[in-house]
Design a protein around this nucleic acid. Structure first.
Lengths: 197, 197
DNA sequence: GTCTATATTAAGATAGAC
DNA sequence: GTCTATCTTAATATAGAC
């Protein structure tokens, strides 16, 4: 079996990647093994050699999302000189991922919402992706000097982003998305100015 | 067949009510006819006398939601003396429906998100509920004197509410919900003050 | 590690008696 | 208008050959 550092991905990795994308585009429940098998050119039967159940596959997908999110946050940590610059990196994902957000909403929010309705045991694991963003954002606001209300501000930014993704997707409204990103950046600048006093 | 004004609801009305609630709690796709039939004490077979397909039932549910929303907006129109008071009625549904929002999120946002992923033809109809709120909110901001950016403000309020519902549900966080309602009301007051100048 | 064939289950939908 | 019984389909999951 090849390692993660190998040039070509293992079948297992291909399955997880395909599932990750399809769960985002079609939802977890309505994505069948047949859909995934077709994407990676694999027979349905062979599927179960890699994952015993669909829930096992979901866990692998969420684990991958958790790792990818942590890598992304570390990257932003390098990119932004000031904490407010790093928070702007977060806000900017709405622009960077605009096309997919308009079509499928936020990958984190839509999955947690679906799993909550399905009463699925993997819900806590899916919510952990939100917690990664929340904790990271809180650290940035703390670094900005907002010790008292850093978590409240983190949740505010996270919530605003969720709302933008949901409505932009519902109305297929790129202009709204850009307007709200501008508003969020203005709000953030106000935070910076307030902290300076 | 009894009329809508009859004291006891028709079987059809009972089915729509049960489906309305279950689609909200469990999602449209994962709610089966068996679930609904059990709720209204009806056999699965008899179901098809009232609705030919599950999609027909969905359309009836959304139609009911559209009518209920219009009635709600008319009610708020009466309740609030000033347009800002009426907008506060809208913001206040986050508090009034808090328990259900914490468990199941926003009924409008979660349905449109699900139908978008299912590529369901009833998506436009479901989005029309959003449009009812949007148009009504826009009218209130126009009445406040914000002729130029009334629609942008309406979308902003709608988006903020969506974000609050999504995150409050994910984190089961009543405190966050209340904080954000407070912030939203403060933001609205700022709008009122700006308009007076 | 991958394949084909098949078992199992659940859900949407129909037929026909009452 | 409601019932029971049944059809059909699709999806998860398994068995066993290669």
């Amino acid at each position: 079996m090849s390692t993660a550092s190998s040039a070509s991905r293992t079948t297992r990795e291909q399955i997880v990647d395909a599932a990750d994308q399809l769960f985002y585009e079609q939802g977890f429940d309505s994505t069948s093994f047949a859909d995934i098998a077709a994407t990676v050119n694999l027979s349905r039967g062979n599927f179960y050699y890699h994952f015993k159940t669909k829930d096992d596959l979901l866990e692998a997908v969420i684990d991958q999302r958790l790792r990818n999110t942590q890598a992304l946050l570390q990257q932003w940590e390098q990119q932004g000189a000031q904490p407010q610059d790093r928070i702007r990196c977060f806000i900017h994902i709405l622009i960077a991922n605009q096309a997919r957000i308009l079509l499928y909403g936020c990958p984190v929010g839509t999955l947690t919402t679906e799993l909550a309705k399905l009463n699925h045991h993997a819900l806590d694991q899916a919510n952990a992706v939100f917690t990664l963003f929340r904790t990271w954002l809180r650290q940035q606001f703390q670094a900005m000097g907002r010790k008292q209300d850093a978590d409240e501000l983190a949740m505010h930014v996270l919530g605003r982003s969720q709302g933008v993704a949901t409505l932009a997707s519902a109305f297929q409204d790129e202009k709204f998305l850009k307007q709200e990103v501008k508003r969020l950046n203005q709000w953030l600048q106000q935070c910076v100015d307030d902290a300076k006093q």
